[in-house]
Design a protein around this nucleic acid. Structure first.
Lengths: 273, 273
DNA sequence: CGTAGTGTTGAATTGAATCAAGTGTCGTGG
DNA sequence: CCACGACACTTGATTCAATTCAACACTACG
């Protein structure tokens, strides 16, 4: 499924990494899961997870990691479109993306929706529900994806026992707050082109973080999702991507993106500041 | 002072509630501070603070509150324009607003600035610095204000000892994340009028929370600050306020705002959704 | 009392939205 | 395996909300 999918656009003979799943060492575990050989593969633990340097276990020692392992629930994989939770559901858990990607969105009465975030492997979902005890948005898989569910009351208990974990979870939340404030600035003062450039660069570094190419990747989301996230219409997103391509900064083929000149993209943003 | 203050309508003899300082019971403590009788008034503790139901001590028992009291530093008051911290300063503490108000902002290279948040009594400032160990914005007083400084490493230590405090601080951060996502939606899909209405209603409920009138209050920030926060120009903010006044929804006199028809303001927002 | 900062209002401009029409792509079921 | 339908994406023409530019009034503070 994902094998042939990858070289769909192979004009000559392209074939890219489709997601973190295809990093060799991850693939072994993930292949099992995807093929349903073992939806709760006991071999996939925080200790042996490729993402443990980015995710919750960072800064924990081995014995601490095994304690964390015990509270983490590794659910069956999610199909494209499956919901992790819906707006107003009781808040129970935060989730760490193991593979694939997710989007969070809120619906407006007029039938429209706005995307509040995209989540890639190693990132934490659901923290907006902690205070109100209800999730404030709905979150669904953008592609076939797998998740580690971390029941929050247990995470709190364990954080109480492990100062490192408490410290790190404070840091994760603080980071989310810092990121949200950057987005605030982006939305309140950037032009459509600046927003789009910034979005691409952001994805780039997030892909790099999980060991994928920072210059060539597949967008897991639609143009419409991007627009709803950046406060632009689909048409504008499409136009801007075309324009960036014409300038030679990027190459776009449907969901496939190559950053030909990341520095030029950075200039788009900093020139205006 | 606060009694007559309320009837501002008398153009002849204006004198309004200027801030939470003027609530009778708060005034006593604050007056001391403002007059520098006692910049670290020992009587002002978390236990007897009027804000303790909104701020950090919520959900703590008496003995826990006194432990919190011990790590809280009650600094000298800040004058209008004084900085709590500046962008890139080492992160040391989070701050709870005791009286007055603050704004956080980031500068852009072009000399402009964007406001990332406003903070009223009982609200927590500085959490964006937790992860990176540096503050991500600069924060300054909008009027004469006082602050409780909470050194973060000590807060972490105490949170480790007091599960209630850990729980509550997770909730405070979660709430910040949820709020930031609402702002994301606001900035990415609301019109200028919707943003302004939403801003006024937000201020209204935050003032109500600290015991001030939800329908009549003074804006501590300039039109320009509001614009930089909402992603609008000063001119637009000014025009929208005038327009809302002409519609009879609000009355504006410089910094003084009265919400004549809060329901109408709510409709502005929900009509469009 | 003067001046810098703050706020208002108007006219012209413009970036992005909207409206519209089309092509491309993918998953499904016959 | 192909054909169909639904969705995703692109491109163009037009409109419009908000910005920009400009001029002026207010106020508040030293």
């Amino acid at each position: 499924m994902s094998a042939d999918a990858v070289n769909k656009a192979n004009k000559s003979e392209k074939s890219y990494l489709k997601s973190v799943d295809e990093i060799p060492n991850l693939a072994s575990n993930l292949a099992d899961i995807v093929q349903n050989k073992c939806p709760h593969n006991p071999n996939v633990t925080c200790s042996n997870c490729r993402l443990n340097e980015l995710c919750l276990p960072i800064a924990l020692n081995n014995s601490e990691i095994s304690q964390l392992d015990e509270i983490v629930e590794r659910n069956r994989p999610y199909k494209k479109g499956d919901h992790l939770y819906r707006q107003k559901d009781d808040f129970e858990s935060v989730y760490a993306v193991r593979s694939g990607s997710f989007k969070s969105y809120v619906l407006s009465a007029g039938g429209g929706s706005r995307v509040t975030g995209f989540y890639l492997p190693g990132e934490i979902i659901g923290m907006e529900g902690i205070a109100s005890k209800n999730y404030a948005n709905s979150t669904q898989a953008l592609e076939h994806s797998s998740i580690c569910e971390i029941p929050f009351t247990q995470l709190e208990k364990l954080s109480h026992q492990l100062p490192n974990l408490q410290h790190h979870f404070f840091a994760i939340m603080g980071n989310e707050i810092a990121k949200d404030q950057q987005v605030h600035t982006l939305l309140s003062s950037y032009t459509a082109e600046e927003r789009t450039a910034s979005f691409l660069l952001g994805l780039s570094s997030r892909y790099a973080r999980v060991g994928l190419s920072p210059t060539r990747f597949l967008l897991p989301m639609t143009r419409s999702d991007i627009g709803e996230y950046l406060g632009l219409t689909v048409e504008t997103v499409s136009r801007i991507l075309t324009a960036l391509q014409r300038k030679g900064f990027i190459e776009v083929n449907n969901r496939e993106i190559e950053l030909l000149d990341p520095a030029a993209l950075r200039n788009i943003i900093s020139d205006s500041e």
